[in-house]
């Protein structure tokens, strides 16, 4: 019993450690702390960023913020979520954003400003580097 409990706690700790370290290394999808949602799927994130969906699964209207074009994190994010390059994304939005039938994400420069905006904005959605994460925002998804 003792041994298994010890083994369990070691396993638990190592699991926790891997989660924490992976958070540190990767991109986290974040929202306002008041959002009544505990997680989000990769598919949902993709549709919100392409303007194809406008609400969380709870029915709340989402305001989406994006990192700056050309930033490394933006390139990684779209590769992971939608398997799209920035050029593909530009062409996608060039056809849509001038009709306003689909709303493109607002652009905010850098993790710090995004965190501040997410902390202040209800039903917000954005993403930052795991290293910048702190208690001011809520994590919905960790991108591997």
């Amino acid at each position: 019993m003792k041994l298994s409990r010890k083994l369990f706690s070691v396993l638990f700790l190592s699991c926790l450690f891997t989660v924490v370290s992976s958070v540190k290394a990767e991109i986290v999808v974040i929202t306002n702390k008041a959002t009544k949602l505990h997680g989000i799927s990769l598919d949902e994130v993709g549709k919100l960023y392409l303007g194809q969906n406008k609400s969380f699964s709870t029915g709340q209207r989402v305001t989406v913020a994006d990192q700056v074009t050309g930033s490394e994190i933006r390139q990684k994010f779209y590769k992971k979520v939608l398997n799209m390059t920035e050029k593909e994304l530009s062409r996608y939005w060039a056809k849509r954003k001038f009709t306003r039938k689909f709303k493109s994400p607002k652009v905010i420069s850098g993790d710090l400003a995004i965190k501040q905006w997410v902390a202040l904005t209800q039903n917000s959605l954005s993403y930052i580097d795991g290293k910048s994460l702190d208690g001011s925002v809520k994590v919905l998804l960790i991108l591997p």
């Binding site: 060039a94 001038f98 009709t99």
Partner: peptide, 16 residues
């Protein structure tokens, strides 16, 4: 912009 033909709505956005 009138959605008259397929590309009409972004007819002046050459990049698109």
């Amino acid at each position: 912009k009138g959605p008259f033909f397929m590309v009409s709505e972004y007819s002046t956005v050459g990049y698109a």
